[in-house]
Amino acid sequence: MNLGTIFSLSTLLNTVNTSTIVILAALGCLMTDQAGIMCIGIDGMIIIGAFAGAMGSWLCGSWVMGLVFALAAGLLSGLFYGVLVIRYHSDEFIIGVAFNLFAQALTTFLLRTLIGQSGSFHPTTGEVVKIPVLQLGRVGDTQVQISIMVLLAWFLVLAMWVFLYKTPQGFWLHASGEHPESLRSVGRSPEKQRYFASLGCGLLCTLAGAYLSMGYLSTFTENMSASKGYVAVACVIFGRSNPLIVFFATLLFGFIEAAGLRMQGFIDPTLTATFPYVGTILMMVFLALRQRTRRGHRAAK
């Protein structure tokens, strides 16, 4: 086995570029987890963001407008989830699952009726303008390319950490999930915090989707999130909603997947395909063992 091909710069770049989708979605998910209404509908929000981003970018011929379309769709998705879960007290898991199915069907329907194409989106005129990529020169044989969304995602991880643990607003958000009554006793509304979290979740997840359809690729295909949202949920649970730990968990997942691909030459390819899922199970077992001493699941303070 040639370890050079597995632990190479290209593997690292691959990891960084693909895990950005999961990082952004996980940041959104952890906001709702902090507010006590964990959203597993993020897979659907990614698909909606991917669709709106590709459409905006194609219609207006500009990636900025693509992002604007995606973020607008994110606000709507967040509001939809928020109203059902916060205003009408629906079960957040059922709404989350329903939202995932709904988003998949809605984007499929819109693609077929508005554009008249099925399966995937291939504009006959114009193209999906991609989010700019930074060329950072060559190292050896490898051209180092990083999308600006990758840097934005990393910045957002730090910003989220500062927000959650260093600002009063962050504490309110956490209190709305941990102990809403005490938040109410100081005259703050936990519902407002939750709405804030669910809107933030919508924005971040659709940003992840926009990166998928107009950053990493330049097309929209039905169900293109390929369950990355569920990986993000697993990372959030593993990292107990601490942005920094969640960030490393997503990188680890990305690395397992990228390395798995490169191991196909040595190991049976049907086995390497299971690596990300085996990784998830191992992480969950680790978590369960660790949590035996700390009762119950709570978002990290």
């Binding site: 190479s8 290209s10 691959n14 693909t18 989708i21 995937s120 490898t142 990228a258 490169r262």
Partner: peptide
């Protein structure tokens, strides 16, 4: 397609 891109980049590397 995202998986296809990863596979191709891995082969290219």
């Amino acid at each position: 397609p995202a998986k296809g891109k990863e596979c191709a980049l891995a082969l290219h590397s």
